[in-house]
């Protein structure tokens, strides 16, 4: 997800992960938390203070920092 499109994220919108990119450890932890290409996630809201982004992935609720979110290539659907 590109930086400029982060601000246009709308709560309730759903996305599909197209691809991963970034550091191996972070990506591996993302997989352990249920993220992989092809997985769908729903944007819930942003934490206070302009903090992490909250996403729902099937039955998991994850908080991702901006730079972690940028590791994901997302497509809205």
């Amino acid at each position: 997800m590109k930086a400029q499109s982060l601000s246009s994220l709308q709560p309730g919108h759903s996305f599909e992960i197209l691809d991963f990119g970034g550091e191996a450890v972070v990506i591996e932890r993302m997989r352990e938390l249920g993220l992989r290409p092809g997985v769908k996630l729903k944007y819930i809201r942003r934490a206070p203070f302009g903090g992490p982004f909250l996403f729902q992935i099937s039955t998991t609720l994850l908080a991702l920092r901006e730079e972690e979110l940028q590791c994901l290539k997302l497509k809205e659907f």
Binding site: E23, L61, L62, A63, R65
Partner: peptide, 8 residues
């Protein structure tokens, strides 16, 4: 190695 990635 720093990451946040928190499960709620």
């Amino acid at each position: 190695k720093s990451f946040f990635l928190m499960e709620l």
